[in-house]
């Protein structure tokens, strides 16, 4: 699996934080014709994102185009097993994307709706958050 994480960071570790509110941006189908939208807040880590991308690519057999709209910017640290508490914060274990309700996770373009729907359903099974399938809406 490809290591999906930032190339450069300002700080190696970050505080836990909370995911509050709804997505005010990145919540529309912007690049493709169909999308997978998150319905609840959560953390989607680099392995989830890659698993979803592989599932969709595999189903679509290199047809159409997949757009991954999220990126794991946040480092999550953990302490090694059988270690006493203290002695500072643990090392980075994995990287994760923070997702709010409404965030568009993936988009698909260049295929029929039934193909996109099945591909995104397979992706949805890999996701740690509830999702829904959406179709691009034309603006006025």
């Amino acid at each position: 699996m490809a290591a999906n994480m930032p190339k450069r960071v300002k700080y190696r570790k970050s505080q836990k934080g909370r995911i509050r509110g709804n997505a005010g941006r990145g919540n529309t189908v912007a690049f493709g014709d169909f999308g997978l939208q998150s319905l609840e807040p959560g953390r989607v880590n680099a392995r989830h994102i890659e698993a979803g991308r592989v599932a969709a690519t595999h189903y679509m057999q290199r047809e159409g185009r997949i757009y991954v709209r999220i990126f794991p910017h946040k480092p999550i640290s953990s302490k090694p097993l059988e270690t006493r508490m203290g002695k500072g914060k643990g090392e980075t274990d994995h990287w994760t994307a923070l997702v709010k309700p409404g965030t568009m996770l993936y988009e698909i373009g260049g295929v029929e709706e039934n193909v996109a729907k099945t591909a995104l359903l397979r992706v949805a099974h890999k996701m740690p958050v509830k999702t829904r399938f959406v179709v691009r809406r034309h603006s006025v």
């Binding site: 699996m1 490809a2 290591a3 999906n4 994480m5 930032p6 190339k7 450069r8 960071v9 300002k10 700080y11 190696r12 980075t92």
Partner: peptide, 16 residues
């Protein structure tokens, strides 16, 4: 080959 190269860079560079 791309995947192996990505795995080799296990940690990002810290700015500054």
């Amino acid at each position: 080959a791309i995947h192996e190269a990505a795995e080799a860079a296990a940690e990002p560079e810290v700015i500054g």
